[in-house]
Simulated scan of single mutants.
Amino acid sequence: MGPGEDRRRAAARPARPADLPALLALFAASEVSAAAPGARAERLWRESLAHPGVAIFVSDADTGGALAATCMLVTAPNLLRGGRAHGFLENVVTHPDHRGRGHGKAVVRAALAQAWASGCHHVLMQSGRADPRVHTFYEGMGFVPGRRTAYVAARPGDPDI
């Protein structure tokens, strides 16, 4: 196998309740913001999986129940655009050891397929990463930079934006 190849084709699946520990480990290894702790994480995970309009996808690593990548699609009803929903892609994370192997693409493709099947007219996403490889990844997945202008209102005093 050459660099960037995986022993199997990366595939996405819907997240399950039992995925929480592996998801928290993925977040910890992937240089994203701090995850919710303990019982709060468990409550939020249950709420997320049960929430209408939220779909979370994961891609399994080859070893011991670890996750290689994840993303979350949030869809929201919309009175405009002929009543077609909005889609928002969030929390796209790939473990550093599994980057370049198709896991990120697999979860984003699954989210986009779900968005189109749900009647979304577009999917919005934002990236706070300055790394040009990240932007190349999203552009390769069909996202067009500059089509919309993003504004972020952060809660006063919240440094995590």
Rank of each mutant, 00 (worst) to 15 (best):
I161N: 01
A76F: 10
R147C: 03
E42F: 00
F143N: 00
V152L: 12
H98Y: 12
A69L: 04
L49H: 07
G65I: 14
H103T: 04
L112V: 15
M72P: 01
H51V: 04
M72T: 15
S48H: 05
G83I: 13
S127N: 05
A130F: 01
A150C: 08
P159D: 03
A55Q: 09
A69K: 01
Q114Y: 03
L73K: 01
E5T: 14
G100W: 06
G142R: 15
R81G: 00
H86C: 07
R43A: 13
A10T: 09
A15N: 04
T70E: 13
P37C: 01
A111S: 11
A29K: 01
R84C: 09
R99Y: 08
T136L: 12
A106V: 13
A39E: 15
I56E: 03
G64F: 02
S118H: 04
A34F: 06
C120G: 13
V58M: 06
A12V: 10
T94Y: 02
S33E: 14
G140M: 14
R84D: 01
A11Y: 00
A153G: 04
N78C: 10
D97M: 10
A61S: 12
H98K: 04
G119M: 06
G4D: 13
I161Y: 03
G157V: 09
A150L: 13
A68Y: 00
S48P: 03
G140T: 07
V123H: 05
G83W: 15
T70D: 03
S30L: 07
E31R: 13
A22T: 02
R99H: 08
F27K: 05
S48C: 11
Y138L: 06
A110W: 10
F57V: 04
P14M: 10
G82E: 13
R147W: 11
G128N: 06
N78D: 07
A25T: 07
A18I: 09
H86Y: 08
D97C: 09
A115I: 11
S48K: 12
A66T: 06
T136C: 07
T63N: 04
E47P: 02
A153T: 04
Y138Q: 06
I56Q: 15
R133D: 09
G119E: 02
G64Q: 10
G2W: 10
P77S: 15
H98V: 00
A150T: 07
S118V: 06
S59G: 02
E5W: 08
A111L: 13
